[in-house]
């Protein structure tokens, strides 16, 4: 039977279909989030099922996670993204001890125990500094497509110092840097370093290795290296990092179905 995980994030919606018997992912999809959250989730879910020649009747259990999880009306239950990212990472990288997830509107650090369960976690507070939104704001300000942001940053030799405390202030700083003709790659690299420093600050003094990086921001080139620099240790990007939460939700659905 199929179990489904839906990660209704602040910027994108992700769906993963899991074959409970084999533990294999049999389908997945992603779409942008929007105002009509419920309709968008339904549409994506139906599309992913259809691609695999499946219908809702083939789905045994559905778990929704993410910021918009309560808008997924057809889900059997909801589980927070903290638990789902932990489950997803445990499945992909069983030895992982720390998960860093940087999504569109928040970032989190999750400490796992030896059995892959959440031991403790920390999340950023009411501020887009340290999130994908920060990258989007700066990319727009620099006139650089978000997809090219990492490549731009990689050309930097001297990342510009940028505040890690507040997106609004950082944007003001960037205007100043642009006025001072600071090269765009240095600004972009500075922003990546600011996000990484923000996340490292959230981690406090204890970050157990191995560290696995998930979420949409993990796909931006250069972010992994910025995090490694801020944390002072290697960081591995999860396979298909944007889908980790949805995978974890599907795994949670499979556990519940099997219970």
């Amino acid at each position: 039977m199929i179990c489904a995980g839906i990660d209704a994030g602040s910027r994108t919606i992700k769906v993963v279909l899991l074959d409970r018997d084999t533990g294999r992912v049999v389908g997945q999809g992603l779409s942008n989030q929007g105002v009509e959250q419920s309709a968008l989730v339904t549409s994506l879910f139906e599309a992913v099922l259809s691609e695999q020649g499946l219908t809702r009747r083939d789905v045994e259990r559905i778990v929704a996670t993410g910021y918009g999880r309560n808008a997924v009306e057809f889900a059997d239950t909801t589980v927070t993204e903290i638990t789902c990212h932990a489950k997803g990472v445990r499945h992909l990288v069983p030895e992982a001890a720390t998960v860093i997830d940087i999504g569109g509107e928040d970032s989190k650090l999750i400490r796992l125990d030896a059995r892959g369960r959440v031991r403790d976690f920390a999340m950023n507070d009411r501020c887009a500094a340290g999130t994908g939104r920060f990258l989007e704001v700066v990319a727009a300000r620099l006139g650089t497509p978000i997809e090219a942001f990492g490549a731009t940053a990689s050309q930097s030799r001297t990342p510009a110092p940028i505040s890690r405390m507040c997106v609004v202030f950082a944007e003001t700083e960037i205007i100043g840097l642009l006025a001072a003709h600071t090269p765009l790659p240095d600004i972009a690299a500075g922003v990546q370093a600011a996000i990484a420093a923000r996340v490292a600050g959230m981690a406090g003094r204890k970050v157990d290795a191995p560290v696995v990086f998930t979420g949409g921001v993990a796909r931006v080139s250069g972010m992994k290296e910025s995090l490694e620099s801020a944390l002072g240790q290697p960081v591995a990007v999860a396979p298909d990092p944007q889908m980790t939460g949805a995978l974890g939700a599907a795994l949670a659905a499979a556990e519940m179905a099997g219970a």
């Binding site: 903290i82 959440v118 976690f121």
Partner: peptide
Amino acid sequence: AVTPELRTRLEAIVETVHQRRTR
């Protein structure tokens, strides 16, 4: 305005407690 975020954090700590009980 921050209730959804607070709810996520509080639900997550509850989930964490339940996971730890299964040890």
